[in-house]
């Protein structure tokens, strides 16, 4: 279970998060939606400890992330970065198998490569890309390599920052199914950021909408369409008219 209590973060005098309260139950898939620049990525990075919140607490399985032993703590996490963040100095398979080539999960290179190729297949990539470098791949392919890297060590908690952005509709469907499968079959806790309402419906158990530095609305995905929150309504209908300003 992941719990955020009153998490705030400012950059300079710009307050991005102003008291985010959010609970993600174990083994559930939470999807975070919200306008561009509202701090969704900052929220994920705060849970991972990559950004230190100014105030508030974040608990993972009841343990305060600030006090947790960072290595053991992070060994249960997988993260897909919005920009992919692939290591461009190594091949695709070495990226995917990064965790399996060093540290506590280290195994023989041959075996690590097998696992990497299997994960690549699951994100819809052929074995032949394994020996290419990230710079040689298209944006959508890089994204999927990032996804394969995030799930390679079968983490218990997985964060996906816009997993389907830049993918064609069919590939988006494949990735949505994969995320759903990881949650249902592996029992992982997932937190996904997306702007794609089809994805939201395909992968979410719960939905949270971030707006103006706070969680504007949260609830089960089934309640989303019936909710009468005007912000949420505007967001899911994609209307220019409503309480959310188009310029921000």
């Amino acid at each position: 279970m992941i719990e955020l209590r009153g998490v705030s973060k400012s950059f300079g005098d710009f307050a991005v998060l102003r008291g985010v309260d959010l609970v993600i139950p174990k083994g559930k898939s939470m999807v975070i939606i919200g306008g561009s620049g509202t701090g969704k990525s900052v929220t994920l990075k705060s849970v991972l400890g990559l950004i230190k919140p100014d105030s508030g607490t974040i608990l993972v399985n009841g343990e305060d992330v600030e006090q947790a032993h960072r290595d053991t703590f992070l060994s249960h996490f997988g993260m897909l970065f919005q920009g992919g963040a692939l290591f461009d100095s190594m091949t695709v398979w070495e990226n995917v198998a990064f965790r399996l080539l060093r540290g506590s999960l280290k195994r023989p290179r041959g075996e690590a490569r097998e696992i990497a190729i299997d994960k690549l297949r699951r994100v819809g990539l052929r074995a032949k890309v394994a020996d290419q470098y990230p710079g040689e791949l298209s944006g959508g392919m890089q994204k999927r390599v990032g996804l394969a890297r995030a799930i390679a060590a079968e983490p218990q908690i997985i964060f996906f920052d816009e997993p389907t952005t830049g993918l064609d509709p069919i590939m988006s469907g494949v990735i949505n199914d994969l995320i759903r499968e990881i949650v249902v079959e592996m029992g992982a806790t997932a937190m996904t950021i997306t702007h794609d309402m089809t994805s939201v419906r395909a992968i979410a158990d719960k939905v949270a909408m971030l707006h103006d530095g706070v969680i504007q609305w949260t609830g089960p995905v089934g309640d989303m369409d019936a909710a009468d929150d005007p912000y949420l309504r505007q967001f899911i209908t994609g209307s220019a008219e409503g309480p959310i300003e188009a310029v921000r």
């Binding site: 963040a85 290591f87 990064f98």
Partner: peptide, 11 residues
């Protein structure tokens, strides 16, 4: 963000 990625990969 490759440095951030390293951190999340326990390195």
């Amino acid at each position: 963000e490759q440095i951030d990625a390293l951190v999340t990969l326990s390195t």
